[in-house]
Amino acid sequence: NKFNKEQQWATYEILNLPNLNEEQRKAFIDSLKDDPSQSANLLAEAKKLNDAQA
């Protein structure tokens, strides 16, 4: 299913963002699990935070 693929991709991407700390990473991944339909939005937020902390 589409959300499952998006969720897996977003999880992979978030795990590989270098500037997030473990707590932030875990929070994003927990949110992905809670609502896979928000995968794209959550990934965008994670990338923004990652860039802000660069």
Results as ranks from 00 to 15, higher is better:
N1P: 15
N1K: 08
N1I: 04
N1D: 15
N1Q: 04
N1H: 05
N1M: 01
K2Y: 10
K2G: 15
K2E: 15
K2W: 14
K2H: 15
K2D: 15
K2T: 03
K2L: 04
F3L: 15
F3M: 15
F3R: 15
N4F: 14
N4I: 13
N4P: 15
N4K: 03
N4V: 10
N4S: 08
N4T: 14
K5V: 05
K5P: 15
K5A: 10
K5L: 02
K5D: 15
E6A: 07
E6L: 12
E6Q: 04
E6G: 03
E6N: 03
E6T: 03
Q7S: 09
Q7D: 11
Q7N: 03
Q8Y: 07
Q8I: 12
Q8E: 13
Q8P: 01
Q8G: 03
Q8A: 12
Q8S: 04
Q8K: 09
Q8W: 07
W9T: 08
W9Y: 14
W9P: 01
W9M: 14
W9R: 14
A10T: 06
A10I: 06
A10R: 02
A10D: 03
A10M: 03
A10Y: 07
A10G: 02
A10S: 03
T11V: 09
T11K: 08
T11P: 02
T11E: 15
T11W: 15
T11F: 15
Y12F: 12
Y12M: 10
Y12A: 13
Y12I: 08
Y12R: 05
Y12Q: 14
Y12S: 13
E13Q: 10
E13K: 07
E13V: 08
I14D: 02
I14G: 01
I14R: 00
I14Q: 01
I14E: 01
I14S: 01
I14Y: 01
I14T: 01
L15M: 13
L15A: 08
L15V: 06
L15S: 13
L15R: 05
L15D: 08
N16K: 08
N16I: 07
N16F: 05
N16L: 09
N16W: 06
L17H: 02
L17K: 00
L17P: 00
L17D: 01
L17F: 05
L17E: 00
P18W: 03
P18M: 05
P18S: 06
P18G: 07
N19G: 05
N19S: 09
N19D: 09
N19Y: 13
N19M: 11
N19V: 02
L20H: 00
L20R: 00
L20F: 01
L20W: 00
N21Q: 14
N21F: 10
E22L: 13
E22A: 09
E22T: 12
E22D: 12
E22K: 14
E22I: 08
E22S: 08
E23W: 09
E23G: 05
Q24W: 02
Q24L: 04
Q24A: 03
Q24N: 02
Q24M: 05
Q24T: 05
Q24K: 03
R25Y: 04
R25S: 04
R25W: 02
R25D: 00
R25I: 06
R25A: 06
R25V: 06
K26D: 07
K26A: 11
K26T: 12
K26P: 00
K26E: 09
A27P: 03
A27Q: 12
A27R: 11
A27E: 08
F28E: 00
F28R: 00
F28P: 00
F28V: 02
F28S: 01
I29G: 02
I29D: 01
I29T: 05
I29E: 03
I29K: 02
I29L: 11
I29W: 04
D30Y: 04
D30M: 11
D30V: 08
D30F: 06
D30T: 06
D30R: 09
S31D: 09
S31T: 09
S31I: 06
L32I: 13
L32V: 09
L32W: 03
L32T: 02
L32P: 00
L32S: 02
L32M: 08
L32A: 04
K33P: 02
K33A: 14
K33Y: 15
K33L: 10
K33M: 14
D34P: 02
D34N: 13
D34K: 08
D35A: 13
D35N: 14
D35G: 04
D35S: 13
D35Q: 08
D35L: 12
D35H: 13
D35R: 06
D35T: 09
P36G: 10
P36T: 03
P36V: 03
P36L: 04
P36M: 04
P36N: 04
P36R: 02
P36W: 06
P36D: 03
S37R: 07
S37L: 08
S37E: 07
S37G: 08
S37W: 05
Q38N: 13
Q38D: 07
Q38G: 07
Q38Y: 05
Q38S: 09
Q38H: 06
Q38L: 08
Q38P: 01
S39Y: 15
S39P: 04
S39V: 13
S39D: 02
S39T: 05
S39R: 04
A40I: 14
A40R: 13
A40H: 09
A40P: 05
A40G: 09
A40V: 13
A40D: 06
A40L: 14
A40S: 08
A40N: 06
N41T: 10
N41Y: 12
N41A: 11
N41M: 10
N41Q: 12
N41E: 09
N41H: 12
L42K: 07
L42P: 01
L42G: 02
L42Y: 11
L42F: 13
L42Q: 07
L42W: 09
L42R: 08
L42D: 01
L42N: 03
L43K: 02
L43Y: 11
L43V: 14
L43M: 06
L43D: 00
L43G: 01
L43I: 04
L43H: 04
L43N: 01
A44G: 09
A44S: 14
A44E: 08
A44M: 09
A44W: 08
A44I: 08
A44P: 01
A44N: 10
E45S: 14
E45Y: 06
E45T: 08
E45I: 11
E45V: 09
A46N: 00
A46S: 02
A46Y: 02
A46V: 02
A46K: 00
A46L: 01
K47M: 12
K47W: 06
K47I: 13
K48S: 11
K48V: 11
K48I: 11
K48R: 10
K48G: 04
K48P: 00
K48M: 12
L49E: 03
L49Q: 07
L49H: 03
L49G: 01
L49K: 05
L49A: 06
N50V: 01
N50D: 05
N50K: 01
N50F: 01
N50L: 01
N50Y: 01
N50A: 05
N50W: 01
D51E: 12
D51R: 06
D51S: 12
D51V: 09
D51L: 13
A52G: 07
A52H: 11
A52M: 10
A52N: 06
A52K: 13
Q53G: 07
Q53A: 07
Q53N: 07
Q53F: 10
Q53R: 07
A54Q: 11
A54E: 12
A54D: 06
A54I: 05
A54S: 11
A54R: 11
